[in-house]
Structures are given as C-alpha cells and as structure tokens.
C-alpha cells in the first residue's frame, strides 16, 4: 500500500471538487470493501475522500410517498428502519441476508451499490483478470467459476455482482441519485450496473468523480407484498450463489403488478423482464409462475461448473412467488 492522502469534505460540492483536485482519488464510505482492496493491492488510490462527514446520513419521506435514503446511511440502520420494514420488506430482508452485523454497521448505501465483485481472480494480483487489468485475460473462464455468471456474461468477464441490497432495489424500481461535475441526475437502480461486454473494468454507469448522494424507494412499490430469498453455502455470512427479490400485487386472482430481480446470476442484478411480461395480467397460479420463470431462465448460458444455478434460481423464484400470492378463494 502506498502513502495515502486524506481529505474530509463537509459538503457534496466540496467532495466532488476534492475528487477533481486529486488525481487518483477514491471516495471512502464504510471502507469495508475499499480498505480490503487497498490491503490486497487491487485498489491503489493516491488520496481518500472521506464521505463520513457529508450530510447524507438521513432518510426522509417525500410528499409523493417515496422515501429518500442518504448515501451514507448504514446498512444496519436502513434494514431496521420501520418504514422500510413495513413498506419495502424485500429491501430490509436483502440487507439482513448480507455480510455480518459488524460489516452492516459500517457499510453504507452508496458503498454497497459500488462494491466490487468477489471473483477470486480479481482479488489476486498474480492472476489474469480483465476487470482489474484490461487485456490481461480472464482467469475464471476456464478456472474456478462455480460462483460465476450464467446470464449476460461476455468473452472478457463472467463475474457476478455480489450485492444483495442492489437486487432488492432493482426489483422495487428504486432510483439512484447522483451528483457530479455536471450536476445532479438519477438512474433506475435496475439499470445502474452494466453488463461486462468489452469493458468489464466498468461495473456501473457512474461517471468519473460522480458521487452517489442517495437512493429513492418509490411510492409505486410502497406497501406491496415483497420478499427476498438467498441461497448460499452456509446459513449466514456468505455471498449469494443465487438470490431473488420479488414484489407482487395480485387482484381478483390476476397479477396486477410484478417486479422480479435475481442476484448471483449476472454482472448486475438481473431484472426478469420476460417473466414479468408473461405474468402481467395472468392468473396468479403456480402453473403460470412456473411457465413464466422458465421463459427468463431459458436465456441462461451456464459455464462448465455452474449449471446448478439455473435450477436453484428457478426454485427460489417459484418459492417466493407462491408465498407472496394470496391463497386462491375456496371454490
């Protein structure tokens, strides 16, 4: 680790200016990913810009019924927020399914969205990795890739996004609020992360120097039945092999609104648009769910050692859909 400069801005504007003034700088939030990667030598910033004193640690209800969550709100506090637990339960469940209590006490909304992949080749400087060092090759493609992607991967990279939170945000139609040299903008959480394509070094559509200022949970999914389910190698404190977040509104036995996103399957939370389209207006029955889920997963292209993820994801999705759907009225 090389010597590090350190600045602690007091406002969003100062933070963005500090980034411009210090070539090679990185924003620092909870540090649970960045400090890890500093120690591994994967990240080599010249200067850290500490976001800890920015006024982004609050959560406020907006007049339209949505909830804005600041970028430096801790994952543990967000998961415990009664408004989140009652109106967007999939988000609280996803946060609580991630990492450990200690890590969630440090991790922030913004940092969680921007955490890097857990691909072991990415973390090992002795191995080729197109994400860490573009053009060096992908060690995982013919190597150990049991945990890697089955959807949307490229010749250059087969990594998955490790965030549980991001999967729930994608299903719930949340927005990501950004502030950069060109001012503020918003992106849908479902489109915030990229597919690897030819540029796996870029995880998201964030621009250099841009700051995540917060996320917005929309009124359109507030109070709807939603849930998150994750499968992992041990009961707790492990990343997802596959996971799913579902929000479902059923009226008169018919699907009126549905959002489904998978985790652990791709370079970004995978919004199951084919499934959603098939279910919209369809009868909310186990058979309909089964057919619609299969439509999406038919696009999977498993690697040598991870075909198990396809049936795992299918079973997770069916379990959650059937659980959220109201029991049919007795005939």
């Amino acid at each position: 680790m090389d010597a590090l400069g350190y600045v602690r801005p007091g406002s969003v504007q100062e933070a963005v200016e500090a980034y411009a003034a210090h070539p090679g700088a990185r924003y620092l939030a909870g540090g649970t990913n960045l400090v890890d990667l500093l120690k591994l030598g994967v990240e080599k910033p010249t200067t850290l810009i500490d976001l800890g004193r920015l006024p982004l640690d609050g959560t406020e209800e907006l007049p339209d019924g949505s909830l804005r969550v600041g970028a430096t709100v801790r994952n543990s506090d967000l998961a415990a927020d009664p408004r989140v637990r009652t109106r967007w339960p999939a988000l609280s469940q996803a946060l609580l399914a991630g990492a450990s209590a200690q890590l969630r006490n440090a991790a922030t909304t913004g940092g969680n969205l921007l955490q890097r992949t857990r691909c072991p080749y990415f973390q090992d400087l002795d191995k080729p990795c197109n994400k860490r060092e573009p053009g060096s090759g992908c060690g995982a493609r013919d190597g150990v890739h049991r945990d890697h992607a089955v959807l949307g991967h490229s010749a250059q990279c087969i990594a998955t996004n490790p965030s549980d939170m991001a999967v729930a945000l994608a299903a719930l139609d949340a927005q990501v609020e950004l502030y950069g040299p060109d001012g503020p903008r918003r992106l849908p959480a479902a489109e915030f992360h990229r597919l690897p394509g030819e540029h796996p070094e870029r995880d998201t559509w964030i621009r250099p120097g841009e700051l995540i200022t917060g996320i917005v949970l929309p009124a359109a999914t507030a109070g709807l039945p939603s849930a998150y389910r994750k499968a992992r190698d041990r009961a707790s404190y492990a990343f997802a092999l596959a996971s799913v977040a579902v929000v479902l509104r059923v009226g008169d036995g018919v699907v009126a609104q549905v959002g489904i996103a998978y985790g652990g399957l791709a370079h970004r939370p995978w919004r199951a648009r084919h499934t959603e389209l098939a279910l919209q207006g369809a009868a909310a029955t186990p058979a309909a769910f089964e057919g619609a889920v299969a439509l999406e997963l038919a696009h999977a292209e498993p690697l040598r050692d991870n075909a198990y993820k396809v049936s795992l994801a299918r079973n997770l999705a069916l379990d959650v859909l059937n659980r959220l759907a109201p029991a049919p009225a007795p005939a």
């Binding site: 620092l28 200690q102 890590l103």
Partner: peptide, 13 residues
Amino acid sequence: GRRLNSCLLLAVT
C-alpha cells in the same frame, strides 16, 4: 457503542 471490524477501519476516520 456499535460493533465494528477494527481491521477494516482506517484510524484517521
């Protein structure tokens, strides 16, 4: 008062 992993906390912060 909150439990944290001290190995990932930069002292300066």
